[in-house]
Nucleic acid binder design. Sequence first.
RNA 1: GGAGCUGGCCGGGUGAUCGCAGGGGCCGGAAGGUCCCUGAGGAAAGUCCGGACUCCACAGGGCAGGGAGCUGGGUAACUCCCAGGCGGGGAAACCCGACGGCAAGUGCAACAGAGAGUAGACCGCCAGCAGCCUCCGCGCAGGGGGUGUUGGUAAGGGUGAAAGGGUGGUGUAAGAGACCACCGGCACAGCCGGCGACGGUUGUGGCCAGGUAAACCCCUCCCGGAGCAAGGCCAAAUAGGAGCCGAGCCGUGGCCCGCGGCGUUUGAGGUUCGGGUAGGCCGCUAGAGGCUCAUGGAGACAUGGGUCCCAGAUGGAUGAUCACCGGCUGAUGGUCCUUGGUAAAUGCUCUUAUAUAUAGGCUCGCGUUUGCGCGGCGAGAAUGUGAGCCUCAUCGGGCUACAAGAUAGCCCUCGAGCGUACCAAGGCCAGAAGUUACAGAAUCCGGCUUACAGGCCGGCUCCCUCA
Length: 115
Amino acid sequence: MDTIKGRKEFLELYGSGRKRTYSTLIIFYKEKGQGRRFGVAVPRRIGSAPARNTVKRRLRELVRREEKRLPDHTSYVLVLRGQREPGFRELEDDLHRFIEDVKRERTQRFEEGPA
RNA sequence: GGAGCUGGCCGGGUGAUCGCAGGGGCCGGAAGGUCCCUGAGGAAAGUCCGGACUCCACAGGGCAGGGAGCUGGGUAACUCCCAGGCGGGGAAACCCGACGGCAAGUGCAACAGAGAGUAGACCGCCAGCAGCCUCCGCGCAGGGGGUGUUGGUAAGGGUGAAAGGGUGGUGUAAGAGACCACCGGCACAGCCGGCGACGGUUGUGGCCAGGUAAACCCCUCCCGGAGCAAGGCCAAAUAGGAGCCGAGCCGUGGCCCGCGGCGUUUGAGGUUCGGGUAGGCCGCUAGAGGCUCAUGGAGACAUGGGUCCCAGAUGGAUGAUCACCGGCUGAUGGUCCUUGGUAAAUGCUCUUAUAUAUAGGCUCGCGUUUGCGCGGCGAGAAUGUGAGCCUCAUCGGGCUACAAGAUAGCCCUCGAGCGUACCAAGGCCAGAAGUUACAGAAUCCGGCUUACAGGCCGGCUCCCUCA
């Protein structure tokens, strides 16, 4: 899993990337460069350092599992929503929804494209 | 067994699947692959002290600023640690203390109170003066009690966190360190013990000096600045840009003097606009290091030997998911064990026998409420003491009657052992459910402080019981 590094690149995705909102996550993404690259952001309001680290590990684990199902040549930033530490299942559900949404979006574009 | 104090330690485990970071070996031209090893804490936290390390400065002096503040020791150093002293808390084990100086100066103190730091008369106490009352009337002597007023007084009451030493005496109208004795405290001097803080003791002195220095301040001692984004190397890039101000600027990091450097035609420096970089490597993990043994020491710790190598990320690794097992709390159940209590709704056996002081009321006797004289009223009121009588209550419980209580009637009654029933507590077994903390290295150490579900081991104090 390649990671996004540098504040500038994060700001670029926040500014010009596409955005989808789910119950525990906000996901920014944009076609860019080679391969798939990921960034994870967990705000301070979630809790202490150990709590934030746990959430980040869960998100990385999910990305590692599901990476192949996402479109290539794209950068993604996953930002945590809410005030509390979410469970693994909640995060998993949201990521699956995102994968379905992105797949539908590409199919639509593919059908509209040649027409 | 209970209550408490204290020192040290731990702070989930196993398995499966899928992963991360560093190092090493092997394969490969490289990308990478593969195997092995290692991979968060007691506080990694707060960033509060102290150091190591790195760079800058080193020419000093004065002023300012900050810190420390009982003694001796330990340490690289400390605001830390050990031992001791003193003060405070506790019945004790033990705990707590910024613990130099308010008898150098200046300042501050709410409310209450008469008075709060050169003290102060609200009540009280005492004295003088005036006038009044004393079973009734009158007189004499003496006493007592109020009132008003003028003074005295810090004994007593009251206020307050605190009222200007305490106790006893002398003294006095009443009092007062006014004087005396003892005690406490203070200052000075001596002696004894201790390295010392200090302790003990003797003498002298003046009667005594309130609190607050995390109030200013005074005294003693200590203190260059910045921090691993320190600092160095490599690579890349900006571009030696423009406008304006301009005689000072920089370092000695607070200020002044002084000193050093740069600059005033060759323009230091500042500011605005425009533009750009922030990639890699080293520092970077072997250290005041861990474990263990020996020696010295009361201890903190030191010295020496042996042995081990134990995180180094940089959008930041050290894990994610699932299953099982633990730890703790525990509704409820089993009624197996122990202990205690209750029971004419209880059985059996043994052994047997008991009376008290106080309170209240009533009656009677005696004494006192200054003395005397005359008259009146009246055996009264208050108080002390002695004798007799009466009443109530307590000294055991249950049942019946009554709404309840008083009360009345009836019954059982003491002690010991065993058993039965019920209740309570503890142990044991089962167990729904809940809970499983605080918290994430970022240059590294030594500390401090704060947070923490729960658990383990040791030592000590007090109380109860048994032998």
